[in-house]
Write a protein that binds this DNA or RNA. Structure first.
Lengths: 115, 115
DNA sequence: TATTATTACCTTGTAATCCAAGGTATATGC
DNA sequence: GCATATACCTTGGATTACAAGGTAATAATA
């Protein structure tokens, strides 16, 4: 039942991660809960989604990480690189134009050549 | 380079197909071009996307098809069933709430517990 | 003290689905 | 005659979300 929701969520975890890290450095477990909290539970990506996204973004040079001990707990904090900032900007643009296009079709506007 | 766009398009072809068929019966090839036209080219799903979606929806009882000859051309026309109408309604609701939740996070609102 | 829950990291396997590419066939335009 | 457009279809690859499971430390509870 994976993508089985057909849930309109492809690429969204990456966008959310980049957006949250724009404000401040965060660690994975914190990001998982921040997405839930800020969306009032409407969005809920598990660790099995977020951790691979973080690793992929770091591998691509969009993030940098630094391990830190806090209260005997080992956390991996992430921050955006300049490449990450650009990527966030690009993805946000894509998301905006895409959702607007979908909205246009949903509203049934733009009737080219009505049969 | 498949989902490589990370393009926020999962489930969107199905939604578009159902929405277009809400207005009138259409055939596959026509749907492919209607999506392009109505979105001013912002959305472009090939036949390799649309045909499987049509077959899947028909198998699920959301669509009914009827083959018809038009000008020596063989077309498969699709219409919504009552189940398809319900499915469109559900998907539209899901799409709306999901995109609104994403928008909320993007705007950075809802700051629960600022560090 | 023992036990559970929470924090915090991680990987593996499955399922879904988008997409490009290729394949068939007929009709139309040059 | 030949290329393009119409109209149907399937296959294989790549990506990705997700559940599930695994490790280990601290905090809370009984």
């Amino acid at each position: 039942m994976a993508g089985g929701n057909s849930n309109f969520l492809s690429g969204v975890p990456e966008l959310m991660v980049l957006r949250l890290l724009q404000d401040r450095e965060m660690y994975g477990y914190e990001i998982v809960q921040a997405i839930q909290a800020q969306s009032r539970g409407a969005l809920s990506f598990g660790e099995g989604v977020i951790y691979p996204v973080l690793h992929g973004l770091e591998k691509d040079g969009a993030l940098k990480s630094k391990r830190r001990e806090v209260g005997g707990r080992s956390r991996v904090y992430y921050i955006l690189t300049s490449r990450g900032v650009r990527r966030l900007s690009d993805l946000t643009d894509t998301w905006t134009t895409t959702t607007q296009a979908i909205q246009t079709v949903l509203k049934g506007g733009l009737h080219v050549r009505p049969v």
